[in-house]
Write a protein that binds this DNA or RNA. Structure first.
Lengths: 341, 341
DNA sequence: ATTAGCACTCGAGATGGTTGAGTGCTAAAG
DNA sequence: CTTTAGCACTCAACCATCTCGAGTGCTAAT
């Protein structure tokens, strides 16, 4: 059953009031705040309807009402007018993640931080996937007897390294040669492809030098696997201040979940399609520790290709109309910043 | 004024009881628990003395007594018999940070984790200082027009990299030549020395290639500076469960302080001298957010040289007799593991 | 020096009353 | 048929009060 104009207006007003001060909204207050010439009794009737529809709930018999996640969902989908990003915020964003920082890792960090700072919630950035990076350079260094340091560099300047133990000591010349061979054979090709090729090439060989290549391949695999998990998070502790989560039991779970990242990453990777801001309100995420929280995320892209997702985690009761453009803007600026690095 | 035998015994018993169950200990219970043939009244007299001396304090008039940080200090210094590390724990430690992991970073992580797991508190490892590492290898790669990736490798296999923007495009050959020059001139020398030398060498020059070297030098400086701060921490959230810190206000501060690391690192670096386990009990650390906590730390060393510190952060009321050998043992095993990598 | 006895203190928890915000329902008014 | 006023009712929050039990400090007897 669709809501009529008045009900929508009241719902909107109620949610806005609740977002503003966090306490349940009663009929009298809502009647006043909504600006309609309507008595509290009428408002009560409407509220009862809204509760029947699942948009509102009463924490207890005489405590006014608060929105459910369904209510918030309707609010953001149908009632919310997103305000444009404030010039100050925009300025701050540009300043912090603007184009002058060359290092990818640093830009990502800056974005995470600024998200957390501006929202006073937890900010996150899912790091760019490296799967389709190409291999720029490989180096093998003899660190010590029977220890070789392998270094991988991608075209975007990601560097990853790993210590490999060998059976026999290998001379610098041999290693140099191996590296040359590696660079010539596999350089300039996508990482994923390199690994697959290596897997084929090394199928049966058992030479000592091939053991190095095999280890190198494993390093490459680790790089890919590792970034299944990689996500920057900042300001988790801001969540400690949220009165709605103060019951320490849930909070622990939430913080641990955020820390583990695994499920979170999974959730977010699901929202990489499309290039719009996306919201998970309360239980919508289907992820229990987040059921009291909302996640606002937006993918960021470079040259039309989505590289990752960023956003914030906060209470369901958050100022969506400001958070949404902020996350959106950050995603755009990050994409822009990365396109230059 | 020195404590007589009985007073010491009672103090020990009281602290042990309090550590075991966390509630203030009253005279009756203490008289029973201490195993002495002594009445609660007598115990009360002794307790009053101990309170006068500053070892105990009453949370309120009728609530038994709990140890002060002075009491704990006396306890660990004079009364505590450290039990040897349990075989199970030892086994677990060996398993987790034993010698089979080649990668330094991974070993350090494993140590941090296992500390946190076994103690149910926050575990930390201060990473080895790189100042006296020697420079093993430098590479300059042209990633793109006017962008050079500099890679530093130390003799221990630390790898650090940085993107450098240049004014003009530089050919692969030029960069190769620069790297060769760099490696020949500065390779094999301690990082610190390299930087100082570079500072002198680059004093007045303004060549484009020297700009690269200068940036490389800054990278080296960053490496040194960065590890002023580097510290691994795991399990901070376990601190959320401590009832004694449950007052969220302090807890926030504590978690933030742990996160910031700066002061913590400072505190710990002060305890790098000596090779013994060291305790900071409550306010002893002189660091306000830690004033309800104790820090148990031990330096770890390789070939007689102290590389860093590790330990745990927990409530003052922790089972020192087990924690101390655990931290100690972890430090030894970590040292051993690192000596082989 | 130790102990028993006793009055006293204080927090924790239960009890109960009051207040005020808010509700649902009903009946009257528009 | 919608809106509104009125009213009885509910319930959390607050407060005061009470009891309880654990624990103390002091004193006098052992």
């Amino acid at each position: 059953m669709a809501l009529d104009e008045r009900a929508r207006h009241l719902l909107k007003s109620l949610i806005e009031q609740h977002i503003a001060n966090g306490i349940p909204v009663g009929s009298r207050q809502l009647a006043k705040g909504a600006g309609l010439k309507i008595s509290p009794a009428t408002v009560r009737n409407v509220m009862a309807d809204l509760e029947d529809e699942g948009y509102l709930i009463s924490p207890h018999t005489s405590a006014g009402r608060i929105p459910t996640h369904v209510g918030y969902r309707f609010f953001v989908d149908a009632l919310l007018r997103v305000v444009p990003l404030s010039p100050q915020s925009h300025h701050l964003l540009v300043q912090r993640i603007g184009h002058h920082i060359p290092d990818t890792e640093q830009v990502l960090h800056a974005a995470t931080e600024v998200l957390s700072e501006l929202t006073h919630m937890a900010g996150f950035v899912r790091v760019p996937r490296r799967a389709n990076r190409t291999l720029r350079h490989v180096d093998f260094l003899a660190l010590r007897e029977k220890e070789v340091l392998a270094i991988f560099v991608t075209d975007k300047g990601d560097v990853e390294n790993r210590l490999i133990r060998t059976e026999h000591a290998l001379s610098a010349a041999e290693l140099h040669q191996a590296a040359n061979f590696f660079n010539e054979s596999y350089g300039g090709r996508p990482l994923q492809e390199v690994i697959q090729q290596l897997q084929r090439d090394l199928q049966q060989s058992r030479h000592e030098m091939d053991r190095i290549l095999r280890s190198a391949m494993e390093l490459g695999e680790e790089m890919l696997e590792e970034d299944q998990q990689r996500m920057l998070i900042e300001g988790e502790f801001q969540l400690l201040d949220l009165p709605e989560l103060a019951g320490s039991e849930r909070l622990r779970e939430l913080l641990n979940a955020v820390r583990q990242k695994r499920d979170l990453v999974h959730l977010l990777d699901g929202s990489m399609r499309g290039s719009e801001v996306r919201l998970f309100i309360g239980e919508e995420s289907g992820f229990a520790p987040l059921s009291d929280c909302s996640v606002v995320s937006a993918p960021y892209e470079v040259d039309g290709e989505v590289l990752g997702v960023l956003g914030v985690i906060g209470p369901m009761r958050m100022p969506y109309q400001q958070i949404i453009p902020l996350v959106d803007g950050t995603a755009h600026l990050l994409g822009r910043a990365l396109s230059q690095s």
